[in-house]
C-alpha cells in the first residue's frame, strides 16, 4: 500500500489549467462566428447591436471574393498534386533503402517550414526576379509546392514504416510483378496516408499568405484578400462572413485528416 501515489488522478488546479488552455485555443474562433451576424457595419462593437444574416448574401454577390476563392482553390489543388507526387516518391526512396544522406533528404524537405516564411518568400522572389520570370499563377504554385511536400512525405513515410514488408514479399512470391504489387498491395496500404497528407497539404496551401505575397503578381488569393482587410478594414461585415466560411470549410477536412493520422499512430502504439 502506497501512501500517496503520484499521478493517478489529475488535481483540480491542473484540470482548470488544461481547460483554460483549451478555451483560449477555441473561444476566439467562436467570436468570429458570432460577429458574422452583427448588424454593425463600421466598428467591432460588443455587445452586438443586432443580429442579421444579410451579410452572407452580400458576400455571395461579391465577384472579387469569388475570384479570390477560385484562385485559391486552383492553387491549392495543383500544389497538392505536386506535393503528393514529390512527397510519395521521396518517402518511398527513404523507406526502401538505407542510403547515405537520407537524413539530409528529410532535412531538406522540412527546411521550408522550419525557416521563417519570409526567408522562403524573399528567396523565391529574388530567384524568380533575377531569372526574369514574370510573377504569375504558376510562380505561386512553385512556392506552395516547396512547403507542402513535407506533410505528404511525413504521413506516407510513417505509413510505410508501419506496413508489413511480408505482404510485399508474399505478393512477389505469388508471382506478381513490381507494378502489380504496387497497384494491389502498396497503394491500398498507403491510401489513407495519401488522403490525410493531401488534405493537410491542401489546407496548408489554401491558407498560406506570407510566401504568397512574395511570389504572386497582381493575383489575389483568398488569404491575400483577407490580409488586405486586416491591414485596412473596408468591408468589416463581409470579412466577418468570409472568416466564418473559411473556418467552416476547413474544419471538416482537417478534422478527418487529423483523425486518420491520430488513430493510425495510436494503433502503432498498441502493436509495439
Amino acid at each position: 500500500m502506497r501512501s500517496k501515489s503520484y499521478g493517478d488522478k489529475a488535481s483540480l488546479g491542473l484540470k482548470i489549467g488544461a481547460i483554460g488552455t483549451l478555451l483560449f485555443l477555441h473561444v476566439p474562433l467562436w467570436v468570429i462566428f458570432l460577429y458574422s451576424f452583427t448588424t454593425d457595419e463600421s466598428t467591432y462593437s460588443f455587445p452586438l447591436p443586432g443580429l442579421t444574416t444579410k451579410w452572407f448574401g452580400v458576400a455571395l454577390q461579391r465577384t472579387d471574393l469569388w475570384d479570390a476563392l477560385k484562385l485559391s482553390l486552383q492553387v491549392a489543388s495543383l500544389a497538392t498534386v505536386a506535393a503528393l507526387i514529390l512527397g510519395t516518391l521521396a518517402a518511398a526512396a527513404v523507406y526502401r533503402s538505407n542510403f547515405f544522406g537520407r537524413d539530409a533528404v528529410s532535412f531538406l524537405l522540412v527546411l521550408p517550414i522550419a525557416l521563417p516564411g519570409i526567408v522562403t518568400g524573399i528567396a523565391l522572389r529574388s530567384a524568380i526576379g533575377s531569372l526574369e520570370i514574370p510573377f504569375s499563377f504558376w510562380t505561386i504554385i512553385i512556392g506552395h509546392a516547396t512547403f507542402c511536400v513535407v506533410v505528404v512525405y511525413n504521413n506516407v513515410l510513417a505509413r510505410f514504416r508501419r506496413m508489413q514488408s511480408s505482404q510485399i514479399e508474399a505478393s512477389m512470391d505469388l508471382g506478381a510483378n513490381s507494378f502489380q504489387t504496387f497497384r494491389y498491395i502498396v497503394l491500398p496500404n498507403i491510401a489513407t496516408a495519401l488522403l490525410a497528407g493531401g488534405m493537410l497539404a491542401f489546407a496548408l496551401s489554401f491558407d498560406e499568405v506570407i510566401v504568397t505575397t512574395f511570389t504572386a503578381g497582381q493575383q489575389s488569393t483568398l488569404p491575400i484578400w483577407i490580409f488586405s482587410q486586416l491591414v485596412r478594414p473596408r468591408d468589416r461585415p463581409v470579412t466577418n462572413v468570409v472568416a466564418t466560411i473559411v473556418i467552416l470549410i476547413t474544419f471538416l477536412p482537417i478534422f478527418f485528416a487529423q483523425k486518420i493520422s491520430a488513430e493510425s499512430s495510436d494503433t502503432e502504439g498498441e502493436t509495439k
Binding site: L29, L200, D207, I226, V246
Partner: peptide, 21 residues
C-alpha cells in the same frame, strides 16, 4: 490532440483576425 492541432491547421489569418475583433 485534434482539439489542439485543429486551430493550427485552420486559417492562420482568420485567427489573427479574431484577435483584431
Amino acid at each position: 490532440y485534434i482539439a489542439v492541432t485543429l486551430p493550427l491547421w485552420s486559417s492562420y489569418l482568420v485567427r489573427v483576425y479574431a484577435w483584431k475583433l
